[in-house]
């Protein structure tokens, strides 16, 4: 087997996430030693689980070289519909959970319809659905705050073996998604599609159906993420989830899922989500101005996208056809 010699640059590009992670933890740790305490670490994981769940869903879409900008709105509207139904039919929070996920799946199918059937570029299609979904939600509530029943909040704040429910959910979704991507034919075909859509079509794969399922998966995860996050607060404001698509996409890309498709895993997305949360919490810990924090986050995402771009350029260059063997 011929192993390509790896340059230092490639090594860095492949492990950029971990390098960044180490640097971030070290930096904040030096600034504030209390940051390294188990309590704050546990808090980071809990806070990361919401974005993490959505980022795992986003990974499916990114693997097909697509994008979904509507996750923030899905996080808002799917739990809202679940909440309305729970209220009307007096359903328990667990039922609501399934309703939210199902609504997410339907919204994802709508995105898939725009993209796969009408052939609209994914970012434009999902940019419009971002507004469509949110508009629909605000129409349902007449942009008023929506209060859930008390048992809903109790459900959200419950824990099992001293581990809070959101972390359980995060772990469950992570494992399920991992199994789906690495241990089912569908999952491997997602990777094939992301590597080369043309190739996938030539190999006789049902590309439209694979793509559609990825968008549905993404929205279903976003719905679950929104549902879990709202269950912590017990109420839903009109602006809930606005701008979350950034955090979600950023988490995935930061973790090493490529925007160009076919590269990355759900573990990458999970690590990325924790990294983002670490930065967010670290900025709070070190007392950085509240308004300045998004700027820093923006720069970190920019770096992640930059690394992704360079990595993709290099792999493309490596795959260039040679006509004589390089000895």
């Amino acid at each position: 087997m011929m192993l390509k010699k790896k340059s230092l640059t490639d090594l860095f590009l492949q492990n950029a996430t971990y390098v960044m992670f180490g640097a971030v933890v070290l930096y904040f740790g030096v600034q504030q030693t209390s940051f390294l305490m188990p309590d704050s670490m546990a808090n980071i994981v809990k806070q990361a689980s919401f974005i993490g769940i959505a980022a795992i869903g986003m990974t499916f879409v990114l693997l097909t070289a697509g994008i979904d900008l509507s996750v923030g709105s899905v996080m808002y509207v799917a739990p809202l519909i679940a909440g309305l139904l729970m209220q009307a039919l007096d359903l328990p929070p667990t039922m609501g959970l399934f309703i939210a996920i199902a609504v997410g799946g339907v919204l994802g199918a709508l995105n898939a319809f725009f993209i796969v059937v009408l052939r609209i570029v994914p970012f434009i299609a999902t940019l419009s659905s971002l507004f469509l979904f949110r508009g629909f939600g605000t129409w349902l509530t007449s942009s008023k705050q929506f209060d859930f029943a008390d048992e809903f909040r109790a459900f959200g704040l419950s824990s099992l073996f001293h581990i809070p429910l959101p972390i359980w959910m995060f772990a469950l979704v992570l494992i399920l998604a991992h199994y789906m991507l690495s241990h089912t034919g569908f999952g491997r075909q997602v990777y094939a599609l992301g590597n080369s859509q043309e190739g996938a079509r030539k190999a006789g794969l049902k590309t439209a159906s694979i793509q559609a399922r990825c968008y549905m998966m993404c929205s279903a995860c976003a719905a679950l993420s929104g549902y879990m996050l709202i269950s912590q607060i017990g109420r839903l404001d009109a602006g809930f989830g606005e701008g979350s698509e950034f955090d979600v996409i950023a988490a995935a890309v930061l973790g090493g899922v490529s925007l160009f498709g076919g590269v990355g895993s759900v573990f990458n997305a999970a690590v990325g989500a924790i990294l983002i949360q670490t930065v967010k919490l670290g900025l709070v810990f070190t007392g950085v101005n509240l308004y300045a924090q998004p700027i820093m986050q923006g720069f970190i995402i920019f770096l992640a996208v930059l690394v992704d771009g360079i990595r993709d350029k290099r792999t493309t260059a490596l795959l260039k056809r040679t006509i004589r063997p390089i000895q």
Binding site: T184, G185, Y191, A192, N195, S196, L319
Partner: peptide, 25 residues
Amino acid sequence: LNLFTNLSIAENLFVDGFPRKRGFL
């Protein structure tokens, strides 16, 4: 060649019809 560089050899061989057991690969 029409191969997917991000998949394993086995996966490339079976990409259009994976052997399954209880729904899983």
